[in-house]
Amino acid sequence: MSFEEKEMAENIKRISGVNPRKCMKCGKCSGTCPAYEEMDYHPHEFVAMVEKGRIDELLASKSIWTCLSCFACVERCPRSVEPAKLIEAVRLEVIRAQGANHLKAVQIPELLDEKLPQQAIVSAFRKYSK
């Protein structure tokens, strides 16, 4: 692991409060994930890749935008690793950079429909923008 990789991994661990070393590589998180099919890197890979310092690939992954934050992986992990927190931390690394918002206000009108609750918009902003 290069120095940069190590530093990035440490940062993700600090933001998330997750210790990927607790993982016993059972794959239950990915077994239970409802967004699995939409992801390029899956929950168990997030844990393994943060451990190995492969953050660059995760920063560019599709998965950080498709995690539903349903906490199924958090609830069911037998080692209390909490993969969802890692995914959130990687996403924050992206959107905390200036101009890197994934969802912009101008996009909203076209996404609206009559019934769409505010909650959806607020959630999406919280998840995708800073």
């Binding site: 059972c26 794959g27 990915s30 077994g31 239970t32 994930c33 168990h44 199924a72 069911r76």
Partner: peptide, 21 residues
């Protein structure tokens, strides 16, 4: 090799969803 994430009883069957690592 992998763990089952969820078993859902439905229509007399058990829908097993898990990881093949």
């Amino acid at each position: 090799k992998g763990m089952v994430g969820k078993v859902v009883p439905h229509d007399g069957k058990l829908l097993v969803q898990g990881s093949d690592l």
